[in-house]
Amino acid sequence: MTDSTQSASKTYKKKMPILWWTKRTSYLLFITRELTSLAVAYFAIILLFLIRALSQGQEAYNEFIALLKSPTVMLLSMIALCGLIFHSVTWFNLAPKAMVIKVGKRRVPDVLIVLANYAGWLVISVVIGWFLLSI
């Protein structure tokens, strides 16, 4: 009896409506977080374009800068920045759930791991910003 119910539950797939994630705010936040991966991919491609332009020469670089200044790309970049920041914040806040760090036998408190992530984010941003601004 138990066996048959177990095997039945293994093959049972609940039919979900395709828009199930619009039902609750928490579901919407979940799907938004998942969709931030599009912003990550978008900007990875932009970085690849930058590298291509730099390796091709001054003219290609100028064209790339003009592309970044086009209204469509600027709009996409602004949307992507919202996505990237949402990605960073949700990623860092979940970090203690993904990694348990122990010092001796004591577990490092979650809040310290989160703060360390934000500190790392700040330091890396300042270093990269400094390189880009010291022309």
Binding site: V40, F43, A44, I46, L47, L50, I65, L68, K69, V73, M74, S77, M78, A80, L81, L84, I85, H87, S88, W91, F92, A98, G120, W121, I124, S125, I128, G129, L132
Partner: peptide, 23 residues
């Protein structure tokens, strides 16, 4: 996981520079 961490740490500042501040 590795991509999530590295993108969370380095991409926002690069996008702020190339995608917002510079244009």
């Amino acid at each position: 996981g590795a991509g999530g961490a590295i993108s969370a740490l380095v991409l926002p500042v690069l996008l702020v520079f190339f995608g917002i501040a510079m244009p």
